[in-house]
Amino acid sequence: MILTPKARRKNWGLAALFLFPSLFIFGVFTFYPFFENFRLAMFQTPPYPGLPSKYIGFSQYASILSSSEFMQSLLSTLFFVLLVVPTGLLLGLALAVAAHKALRGMAIFRVIFSSTVVTSVAVGALIFGTLMNPIVGFLPWLGINPNPPLLQSPTWALPSIAAMAIWQFLGLSFIVMLAGLQSLPDDVLEASRVDGAGAWTTFWRVTVPMLSPTIFFGLVVGTIYAFQTFGQIDILIGSQNASQLHVNVLLYYIYQSIQGTNPDPGQAAVLSIVLFVIILIFTLLQLRFVERRVHYAGK
């Protein structure tokens, strides 16, 4: 439809009004802090506010990125993400496939599997923390009684937290996979079965490729979830022990630089930039390798 110039400008005005709230919030709380990181990363900040900062340029990046603490944080983060995301998605897929048919009791099973989505971080951490406690937990009864205990061991603390994160991710993963499965057209699956393909073949050759948009979505969501893991580490391990136990994933390392024993805003800025770059790389990689294989029905 053709609008008069006056009507068109009225539209622009309305658009500006409608866009303004979101843009303002984004401007102040998303874009500004993001770019500010780049500026702050060039300054060596004092241990206490009120004392002057020193401009040292890119050497701050160099000194932080080459430190052993950063290296170890990076490794922990990568290990954690690579452990949590694929395992969580696979388990969710398995459960979704099992719960996919409309059989007796399915509704109850579905509610059960989804329930971890509503267990918040603190709830999950406290429950698992108690279960894994060497004195009041269940592991010694099961014969698992290492010294040092799981959550105090540099080797086992991170996998333990990963196990907890997988449990909590299970609900989300299940819901995503189930929705994906339920949206698949039955006719294709029927056709392949009539052609004589066994259940296993059907699954891998037909179902999974058709699920690829869902799997891609699950990967993206799961990766972000894994990178955001923080509460469990804070509640169960705490700021003092995190680096020694190798659970100071990047986000936790950032937190320690903001409110730890020795806050260092310059360092926090550098680490925030690193976190952004890593998440960006992961997403782009997924876009390239997974989305390329994504098979859209009808395309």
Binding site: N147, L151, I237, G238, S239, N241
Partner: peptide, 25 residues
């Protein structure tokens, strides 16, 4: 030599050494 167990000084397990006396560990 296995004659001592350890626990961290902070965090959820900070008093496991004292609680361990109660538990007989």
């Amino acid at each position: 030599s296995g004659n001592a167990g350890t626990n961290p000084a902070n965090g959820a397990s900070a008093y496991d050494n004292l609680l361990g006396i109660g538990a007989g560990k």
